[in-house]
């Protein structure tokens, strides 16, 4: 039986890990290599690393750092941040990262996505979109770490990415980010109804029940979270955690 993947998303900023609320109020949560070691010991399903200032500052992926992470991790890894061309992807995959995640460049240059899929295969190419509801109740895609409104419709963009052969789409809700009040199952459902690729729900997870809900009501094929795995308690003390295999199994089997 195929299992629902439960994936920590780690945000990198200037070499450190941070966590946001609604893409603002960034709080330092620790050293990335140390976090990787802890998550590896906890046997997480997968890890996603996103360098959230790479595109804004025009930085290239830090291959030395990625190689270091890959040699510590015995689970699949996804890296995103600052990837602009299909050529850059080769070096990232070579150091032992399984998947790359493309956000801003996917919207600006969908041709680059097609090229990458042809060259590296669907399963290596992941696209992520950050979505926000406007005052008329319409969803729009934001890029550049939530700073730029593209006005694109997430559902039609998801269909375009599905056709381009993208293996996986991460859908992150800016409004729900860091709130730990639950995912936005509405937008996930709108997308999963229209595409065949894997859809990963992100933004808003506070507990396993939220994860169950977005799988059941949104049709998500995997669930990702940040705050839930790095904060503990009402005061948001930094503490890395991950549910046990039994807890995960019982959540999704019920």
């Amino acid at each position: 039986m195929a299992l629902i993947r439960v994936i920590p998303i780690l945000l990198l900023r200037n070499g450190g890990l941070v966590k946001s609320i609604k893409f603002a109020d960034y709080k330092y949560v620790g050293d990335p290599l140390n976090a990787v070691k802890i998550f590896n010991e906890k046997e997480v399903d997968e890890l996603i690393f996103l360098d959230i200032t790479a595109t804004l500052e025009g930085k290239k992926p830090n291959l030395v750092f990625l190689k270091e992470i890959a040699s510590e991790c015995f689970m699949p890894l996804t890296y995103g941040g600052g990837i602009k061309t299909a050529d850059e992807i080769k070096d990232i995959l070579k150091v032992g990262i399984e998947k790359v995640c493309i956000n801003s460049a996917a919207v600006e240059n969908p041709e680059m996505i097609k090229k990458s899929v042809d060259r590296y295969g669907s399963s290596s190419i992941c696209v992520s979109i950050d979505v926000k509801k406007n005052f008329l109740g319409k969803y729009e895609i934001y890029t550049h770490s939530g700073t730029k409104n593209t006005k694109y419709d997430p559902v039609s963009f998801a269909i375009e990415m599905d056709k381009a052969g993208v293996g996986e789409l991460i859908v992150n809700s800016i409004d729900a980010d860091g709130t730990m009040n639950g995912y936005n199952a509405e937008i996930i459902k709108k997308i999963t109804e229209k595409v065949n690729m894997q859809v990963v729900a992100a933004g808003g997870a506070g507990n396993l029940e939220h994860m169950f809900d977005v799988v059941k009501h949104g049709g998500a094929s995997a669930v990702a979270a940040g705050s839930m795995f790095v904060f503990h308690g009402k005061m948001r003390a930094v503490l890395i955690s991950y549910p046990s295999q039994d807890e995960i199994k019982n959540t999704f089997i019920s």
Binding site: A2, L3, R5, D45, S122, S123, G167, Q198, S221, Q245
Partner: peptide
């Protein structure tokens, strides 16, 4: 829905017990 490609963790059923399966964890995935 089972999207293709399959991407994720899955269990295995051991169909013949050979030395490759020695001391496997229960519910190996």
């Amino acid at each position: 829905k089972f999207p293709v490609p399959q991407m994720g963790w899955n269990y295995i059923d051991i169909k013949k017990n050979t030395p490759i399966c020695t001391d496997f964890f229960s519910e190996s995935k």
